[in-house]
Amino acid sequence: MHEISVLKQAVDLAEQTAMDNGVTRIAYITLEVGELTGYLPVFFHKYFPVVTENKPIFEGTELHIISDAGEALCKDCEAMYNVMRCEGVCPVCGSRRKEILGGQDFLLKEIGICPEGMNNE
């Protein structure tokens, strides 16, 4: 259930950014979801209509999600591995000591706008 509150923050950020740019209708927004955030894209898709309800700027808006892999560097043998697939344990030497290289961020990447969705055109 933690997806709904961060999705609301993402939608608010997209709405504010769009308004600052004179946009009245958003065609799509793209979120980048790190694998290690624990956020499941399926729930973002499920909650998106709920979170954008009564916001005309989001009428017909598509939600695009790109995933960012949770990679780590083993501090003991320097192997690179995927944290989720290997359950946090280095597949080469079995150590749990690691430096996380990616997959912890949750970003609003871009906002797509239809030409008719611009105020100044």
Binding site: T17, Y28, L107, L108, K109, E110, I111, G112, I113
Partner: peptide, 9 residues
């Protein structure tokens, strides 16, 4: 479609 690059956490 025009795109605004946001790239913000």
């Amino acid at each position: 479609i025009k795109v605004i690059d946001v790239n913000v956490g």
